[in-house]
Amino acid sequence: MDTRSSERRTSTRESPLWPWQVLLLLGLFVLWHVLTRTEILPPFFFGEPLQVLARIWDWFSTGRILPHLGVTLLETLLAFLLGTVLGLAAGLWLGLSPRAARLLDPYITAFNSMPRVILAPIFAVWFGLGIWSKVLLGVTLVFFIVFFSVYHGVREVSPVLLDNARMLGASRMQLLRHVYLPSAMGWVFASLHTSVGMAFVGAVVGEYLGSARGVGYLILQAEGVFDVNTVFAGVIVLTLAALLLDRLVTLLERRLMSWRPNAQDRGARS
């Protein structure tokens, strides 16, 4: 019994999961294909996977998608960077001055619970149909994620570490630079995957509500002429881009957060 169960455990560890993940994806495509081909699902509303793939291939082989994808990714990146920096700064500030935090508390709660996507048309009026109205929408989404994780994180900085830094001669500014900021980076990274996703949502939704370029714009155009295949193609391209961004974040995290114990080390340490 024992040997068999341990064998099974090693065999699952040895065989990688990705072939199964690819198989699952293929299976879903085949199912989609069969259902629409037999017209159990009307192809007019559900699209046809082969044509969707053909559209994606066409986009990339002619390079026509690239300027649109480039704009969407640029908006995402800017929204992400601006939102993170502002969220980090505000989180540190309010985390360190409880008076200001109490003063602003109702406003923060209000802004956070407000459905901020509604702001998109207003931003479009304020900042035009260019990239900045989308960036700003993304910023309002990213800001609160980063802000809350830093704001709560500041209170959890080890008091012993703070005492130690003070005994070693750290001034108030040096405490910020050498204790609070590095700690905060950990919390920022903890929320990074969510905030990149949110920046992406901000960019695409912004484009969808009014723009002249971007993948969201392509989707909007296709919907206007009931071209469901193109809509699905746009959605798939966006999904792939999101996966890629998430992967990049993971790589960045590994590089910058090498000081953090990962699960493996934690298990080995006694």
């Binding site: 080890s158 012993v160 570490l161 050498h178 590095p182 980076m185 950990g186 000081w259 953090r260």
Partner: peptide, 8 residues
């Protein structure tokens, strides 16, 4: 308790 800077 430990008071080393974990990121250093």
């Amino acid at each position: 308790t430990d008071a080393l800077f974990p990121w250093r």
